[in-house]
Design a protein around this nucleic acid. Structure first.
Lengths: 243, 243
DNA sequence: TGGCGTGGTTGACCTAGGTCAGGTTAGACC
DNA sequence: GGTCTAACCTGACCTAGGTCAACCACGCCA
């Protein structure tokens, strides 16, 4: 059943050049020359199954990863505490490991939430490539800066707002990120469990469940299992803005 | 009353070379040549008074700033909400503005908490300098990466821990940061108000006040006004670790 | 010296959401 | 098909911390 066009597509998807995420990923704006050099250093993705770890807390840092398809969560185990804390979710084209640059070891684990393909970028090679190509260096900085802004948002979400506001903000954030990556902003999978969402938002999983139900009854969203449909972007936004 | 040695000291402090923060700041590890070039691009500090803004939310981004002495808070005003949210405190040798790199405008304001001196680094010039000097480029990345880890901590603090754990974590964080910059880890000024701390930790200011009082009664700290003395680092750490 | 404004503390009360416990659904495996 | 488990939902109860209000301590200015 493999057609010529499928074969072609598969091949091209093995290189940044033909990758559908090219325009949103680290490679954005690279010259053809730079892109080819970049392609060279990528260790080609081996798929992760749901639950498999991409990096483990405490292990030495040596690579960044770019999410190609799928999603992951970043979890941290704090000393003397038995439960894990979800600090981040990664979607396609997002970079994993930026916070470990300049450190010997990784501060948190990153685990696949579904079958996930990533591109591995050995950091030493990436760094020497960045010396040569200004555009890559600039994009790497922009990428980190963007993540800093993302963390700002997260801190704002968490600081003293209600469960409604947190969940609304979280869903809007997902919607925005999916949209920026060319997916639908109105319909997407929540690949993470309610417990993961709760941990990430500083809420009990029961609260996540209840509020999600409330949103559904109010006609803001439609949830069936892990598929989410946003019914009223405005409604969700209004929630976040009251105070 | 100006002695020769004071004059000398003042002069030398106008350059990175003689600056007491050299080893913890962006300039760490720069060669003499790079350091001199770096010195060239610095716009020399004009002091900010308490309450004065260093950057304002929405204004165009063109410079990074390094804190020389004093402290600042980063506050964000969210659309449709009247109260400001404190997202960050800056101490000496920390960099302001990293999250605005690659953006046209600043996402938040930064306001002095006391009389504060900063060094201004026009970003375009910094960037071209970074092209020439690998060490600077690397240090800039490490700086951003460190800030990402700081935000991770912050998210962990905020996510569903108790008021005690948040405040203990906050105080420990300050202690650690002061210590890393050569100040005492046991005794420092809380230059921010209780309201600022509360906003930053997602707590009401009354709660901050109460918990601070509790800590004092438990012999963990001594607070008189805004001067804080840590009596038991271990005690505070133990608080953060239970769960 | 007294009034005033700002920041901090303390107490009384109340509610958002955590905790615990039971019940349902859906996929994985035999 | 039946069983098992993990994820999710829902209800009852309770407590951490938010809210409101009074009060204090201080620096500032007239």
């Amino acid at each position: 059943m493999t057609t010529v066009s499928q074969t072609y597509r598969r091949q091209s998807e093995m290189h940044c050049d033909g990758c559908s995420l090219h325009s949103t990923c680290l490679t954005r704006g690279l010259s053809q020359v730079a892109l080819e050099a970049f392609d060279e250093i990528i260790v080609q993705p081996r798929p992760l199954k749901r639950g498999q770890a991409l990096v483990r807390q405490g292990q030495p840092f040596h690579s960044l990863y770019l999410v190609r398809t799928g999603s992951l969560k970043q979890v941290i185990r704090l000393p003397g505490r038995q439960d894990e804390q979800v600090i981040h979710f990664y979607l396609p084209s997002e970079a994993v490991g930026l916070e470990a640059i300049g450190e010997e070891s990784c501060s948190a684990s990153v685990v696949a939430l579904e079958t996930t393909f990533v591109c591995e970028l050995p950091f030493e090679q990436l760094e020497s490539l960045a010396v040569e190509h200004d555009a890559l260096r600039a994009e790497l900085m922009r990428c980190m800066s963007r993540e800093l802004r993302g963390d700002q948002r997260q801190v704002c979400l968490l600081s003293g707002r209600t469960a409604e506001q947190r969940l609304a903000g979280f869903l809007l954030g997902l919607s925005r990120r999916f949209h920026a990556r060319g997916y639908s902003r109105y319909r997407f999978q929540l690949t993470m469990s309610r417990a993961d969402i709760g941990s990430h938002l500083g809420l009990a999983l029961e609260t996540v469940s209840r509020v999600m139900g409330r949103f559904q009854r109010q006609g803001l969203v439609k949830v069936s299992g892990r598929e989410l449909t946003v019914r009223s972007l405005e409604g969700l936004e209004a929630l976040g803005e009251e105070g």
